[in-house]
Design a binder for these strands. Structure first.
Lengths: 232, 232
DNA sequence: TTGGCAATTTGACTTCGGTCAATGGCAAAG
DNA sequence: CTTTGCCATTGACCGAAGTCAAATTGCCAA
């Protein structure tokens, strides 16, 4: 019995496209790996050597300008796919925001497997198209939204993503409380703002009663309508 | 003999994955269509009903916020693929910037064809991954670059894209002159700026001698190094 | 050629968000 | 329990880009 049978994301990740035999085969070329918060899996600019599925945890994809600024260009959650198949160099680094567990494959092995199993390629294509959609919505946020709209949009997107299972960091539905997998600096890097502006916007939302901030890493949504209205 | 034989983008578009018989089949479910500058092919928010290949011309993908601001989230050139296969709604509109010629397919027909011809799906996947890479680089620009860096980066990217064949709008290598497929407002919508800021940055580059502006729709690169340095 | 119109440029002023600096608070280590 | 250090918050100020308004340009049609 392969370890995949008990995998939390077996039916939501790209593996859902595969039957029992295929999954055994894929399992044989991959291996589990645990990451601690802050640990990197892939570095910006290196040749793409590995790809992975996220089993548990949250990871960021990020690039930097030469003058030291960083921009987070993507955030991945359990069942998401990481990496750049088909022989390109990765334009961004991948780093764990929380402790995480991933299922890694050598890019070369994975490419071969994908070519021999079109159903996997198909799933990967659908996933990539979805990711492109999400990234483009994010561009609208970066290009046209104000700081307050950015922060509100960020909290809403986070909420949606954290309800999905496998996130250690849960969004507790009844209490509407969520645990932030991001530091203030990281939120700033997602939104193209500074840490000070993020802090000011969050305290403003708190003072207005829209949200509560029990601790640095927790947010309570007190007035969802107001948050949606503020997201622009 | 199918019309595809003389197609300029036959070997660069996703069609390059197909053999003679397959291409005849694909051709039978598609049709050519001419667009005049400003004409839309797909509207934001509608169900995805058609997909297409760009044969000639330049088109924009764009979304708007409710308060009237627009953000261009992608620009497509000859041989690029347009649209959202596999049954989602399109999150952005597609509009011709120049007169253009495209090869359109009903999304439903195309989906079926793609599922039966994995090599096409494979090409589409590679293309989509590349597009995602380019979009993420663009996010860095939107989130972290200053107005002057944005404008310089824009001109450089445009230059690279316009050397490829099939662009009526040519980048004339020796004279380093390029014809802009964008109005000032559209440049602003690409970069997340206002029309005034774009105009000011362009005149600054002209005064500095980095570029020349023979007419509203033409740019001459006079000092490439300076432009690269200014792109951040 | 001229008039009209839209696009662009330019100028004056405002504002949002960035920068710099000081303070506060929490958590791990001693 | 105290110390230490990081992260976050808060405040004062500044500047880049936005806004509003006017002038200019170039283009098309009459």
């Amino acid at each position: 019995m392969s370890t995949c049978d008990q995998c939390v994301v077996r039916n939501r990740s790209i593996c859902a496209a595969l039957d029992e035999n295929e999954i055994k085969l894929l399992n044989s070329i991959g291996r589990r790996r645990n990451l601690t918060a802050g640990e990197s899996l892939i570095w910006e600019g290196e040749d793409s050597v590995l790809v992975a599925n996220v089993i548990e945890g949250v990871l960021k994809l990020s690039t930097g300008t030469e003058d030291g600024h960083e921009q987070i260009v993507g955030v991945v959650y359990p069942s998401d796919f990481i990496g750049r198949p088909f022989g390109a160099t990765t334009g961004y680094g991948v780093t764990a925001l929380t402790d995480a567990r991933v299922c890694v494959f050598s890019r070369r092995d994975f490419d071969g497997f994908a070519r021999e199993h079109p159903s996997l390629g198909q799933k990967l294509l659908e996933r990539t198209l979805g990711e492109l959609d999400r990234t483009r919505r994010w561009m609208l946020l970066l290009g046209r939204k104000s700081a307050s709209e950015k922060v509100a949009s960020f909290l809403l997107e986070l909420m949606e993503r954290l309800v999905e299972p496998g996130c250690k960091v849960v969004f507790d539905q009844p209490s509407r409380q969520l645990e932030l997998p991001f530091s203030r600096q990281q939120i700033a890097d997602v939104l193209g703002l500074t840490i000070e502006t993020v802090s000011r916007q969050l305290t403003r939302l708190k003072v207005e009663g829209t949200i509560g901030l029990p601790s640095r890493r927790e947010v309570v949504i007190r007035n969802l309508d107001a948050l949606v209205a503020g997201a622009g």
